[in-house]
Computed example of a mutant assay.
Amino acid sequence: MKVLHVITGLAAGGAEQQLRFLLPHLRARCDVAVLTGSGVVADAIARTGVPVHQVGMRGNRDLRAVGRLARLMRRHRYEVVHTHLYRACVYGRLAARLANVPAIVATEHSIGREHIEGRRLTLPVRALYLASELLGHLTVAVSPTVADRLAGWGVPRSRIVVIPNGVDGRAFGFDAALRRRTRLRLGVPARAFVIGGVGRLEPGKRFDTLIEALPALGSAVLLLVGSGSYEPRLRQFAGSVGAGHRLIFAGESTDVRAMLSAMDVLAAPSAEETFGLAVVEALAAGLPVLYDACPAVDDLPPGSAPGARRVPPDRLAAELAALAARPPGRLPPPEAVRLYDIRRQADRLESLYLRLLGAVPTEDQR
């Protein structure tokens, strides 16, 4: 089985990292097509031997990308096209139809109540998404929360399948030696209490609330892993509250394990998430987690993630201060990490591919 994964970009975001970690666990022969740019995740994928095709899309209205994608699909005779992120879903599903690809799947990673991948959900954005959805066969929602939002848009439930994101717990296990090396490289004192934030540096992630809390946290250090348009504003804000010397911008990183090993707590203050992959990765690394919105935890049975606690923004500084005063140390990975095992999710995706290709009988055919 030949599968082409089409994704908008390959910077170090949640959807991009998820694709990178998923590929080694898929038995199908997989290629990747990236619409715009490259990035650290593209390089990491290519180093594993998976071909990464650059489409060279120059803007949201570069319709030539559809033709380039369709020619790529015809040339390699892919049996499945699997799209990820808004632009890739719109352009990739159309190209797959033009190329007569037998099975067309999309994963919806980032649909929020008011935004999708940072863009406002205007009527034209929503209409274009729904029109392109009709060109595919199924849409994978990364959480029941996302499935409900898709259904609320008007996507039939029969065309939605929930397959959560996956995590390889062993790949994120805590490493004391790695912690020492990473702190040394970043210039973090060995005994410092490190608050971590992982994700795109955009307003919706609300990392400014962590910066605001820093002055009351003694010698604690804030380590932000990611990049984005909001970084200059965050730097300016840190300077204005006198916390700039205790704030480290690590930039994009494919070695998330190293960054998590260097931290003592992960804080995820975002008000809206579609899954919360960084939270599950942090739990796999044995970190306590303070979050405001995380379907990955909230959709699980109670007690599956005891190290993760919902904390509203007005309580965040106090909770961080309590942890800094009495650091809990490393926690055992909770049941949530096993429930989101990436091998299980890869098996479910491959079964979905085979069902769409007619290789696995449906319930009606049994």
Rank of each mutant, 00 (worst) to 15 (best):
M1P: 13
V6C: 03
I7E: 06
A12W: 01
Q18K: 05
F21W: 10
A28E: 13
A33S: 00
L35P: 02
S38K: 01
S38L: 00
A46F: 00
V50I: 10
P51W: 06
V55Y: 09
V55C: 12
G56C: 11
L63I: 13
A65I: 05
M73A: 02
H76R: 15
Y78A: 03
E79K: 08
H82G: 07
L85K: 03
Y86K: 06
V90G: 08
R93A: 13
V101Q: 03
I104T: 05
A106G: 08
S110K: 00
I116Q: 09
I116K: 04
G118K: 01
T122N: 07
P124E: 07
L128R: 14
L135D: 03
G136W: 04
H137S: 09
T139S: 14
A141G: 14
P144G: 06
D148V: 13
D148A: 15
R149M: 03
S158W: 04
S158K: 10
R159W: 05
V161M: 05
V161D: 07
V162T: 14
V162H: 02
I163T: 11
D168T: 09
G169D: 13
R170F: 10
A177V: 11
R179P: 00
R181G: 08
R183T: 11
L186F: 01
V188A: 10
P189M: 13
A192H: 10
A192C: 11
I195H: 09
I195V: 15
G196Q: 04
G199R: 08
L201T: 04
P203R: 09
D208T: 09
T209V: 14
L210G: 11
A220Q: 03
L223A: 09
E231S: 12
G239K: 02
L247Y: 12
I248V: 15
S253M: 08
T254P: 00
R257I: 15
R257T: 14
S261L: 00
A262K: 02
V265E: 02
V265W: 03
L266Y: 05
A271P: 00
E272Y: 06
E273P: 00
E273T: 03
T274R: 01
F275H: 06
V279T: 11
V280E: 05
V280I: 15
A282P: 00
A284F: 14
A285C: 07
L287F: 05
D292W: 03
D298Q: 14
A324S: 15
R326L: 11
G329Q: 14
P333D: 12
P333K: 10
L339W: 08
L339Y: 08
Y340T: 07
Y340Q: 04
D341N: 15
D347C: 08
L349Q: 02
L354C: 03
R355D: 00
R355M: 12
R355W: 03
E363A: 14
R366F: 09
